[in-house]
């Protein structure tokens, strides 16, 4: 697997819609939250269509729930497939998590125990999603605040096995690595060493908040230094991965995000790729 698409992008968020519609913003692509546009019609869908005329689009989901023990919702997959058919995104991604069980949806990215049973469930669900969508997906590593007593493997081993068994790619969120490593006391370097970087198609950058007892993945502030350092390490192993900044709260004016994206470009330009 190799990736060589558009490389530096931003999340498309409401405060910046007009900027993207009225000017040529210097990004290589935008990423949108899939569910915000999985609607029959109206202004949101129209905006995405118009933005798509000028920018490659990655779509990033939060509700597929690939970790649900009772499987995926077919109505969700069909809606997503319809959006993909119209927008033709260059990346389709979702998270390694579960959001739903039975009829109860949490609307949060809930953590999985890293067990062989959970791996079987996730592999089956990702396989089914890729079959229905007719394309490869990227699965993002989550940030998490708890661990399970019955974990049987590390998160990176779980992800590596997932890619091997399903052929899916990875969306590596280096902020999530930092948050989870801090919260659970593992080494970010060990994490990166265990990731099959040939499968990494995209990298997410974001900021987090120090909570009372742990780091919280809030996406409400600039990318901090430890996350930039992880980007440097990740790009050394996946130099052509698409890199984007996620900002979902306290969203600043677009020039501030573009200045952050310039840092990512600068890091990428300085990265030394080790010889194979």
């Amino acid at each position: 697997m190799s990736f060589s698409g558009p490389q530096f992008g931003l999340g498309l968020r409401k405060p910046h819609y007009q900027d993207f519609l009225e000017t040529r913003v210097p990004v290589d692509f935008v990423e949108v939250i899939s569910e915000n546009f999985m609607v029959p019609g109206g202004r949101p869908r129209d905006i995405l269509r118009r933005v798509r005329q000028d920018y490659p689009v990655a779509i990033h989901g939060v509700s597929m729930s690939v970790g649900s023990a009772d499987g995926l919702r077919v109505d969700y997959l069909l809606r997503l497939r319809e959006l993909i058919a119209e927008i033709e995104p260059f990346i389709v991604s979702d998270h390694l998590c579960w959001t739903r069980h039975g009829a109860h949806n949490s609307h949060d990215l809930l953590p999985l125990p890293y067990t062989r049973e959970a791996l079987d469930v996730v592999c089956a669900n990702v396989g089914k999603a890729q079959d229905v969508l007719g394309r490869e997906m990227l699965i993002e590593n989550p940030s998490s605040y708890i661990a399970f007593a019955d974990d049987e493997m590390s998160e990176w081993d779980f992800l590596a096995e997932l890619t091997r068994r399903t052929g899916c790619g990875l969306l590596l969120d280096v902020n999530n690595i930092h948050v989870s490593a801090t919260n659970h006391g593992f080494s970010s370097a060990d994490y990166l060493a265990g990731i099959p970087f040939a499968s990494v198609g995209q990298i997410h950058l974001a900021g987090h908040t120090q909570g009372q007892h742990c780091l919280i993945d809030t996406h409400d502030r600039p990318v901090p230094d430890p996350v930039w350092a992880l980007l440097r390490d990740a790009l050394a192993r996946a130099p052509r991965a698409a890199v984007m900044i996620e900002r979902d709260d306290a969203i600043p004016p677009l020039p501030e995000l573009l200045a952050e994206l310039a840092i990512a470009r600068d890091i990428a330009s300085q990265v030394v790729v080790p010889c194979a």
Binding site: S106, H107, D108, L110, P113, S144, Y145, I146, A147, F148, A149, D150, D151, N183, G211, Q212, H213, C214, I216
Partner: peptide, 25 residues
């Protein structure tokens, strides 16, 4: 819940996220 030791504090983040998301909606 079959949690690892010391997970109680982290659980609070999920409890807060759940209610905050529904309230905001």
């Amino acid at each position: 819940l079959p949690l690892a030791k010391g997970a109680e504090h982290g659980l609070g983040v999920y409890q807060n996220n759940y209610r905050a998301a529904l309230m905001a909606c």
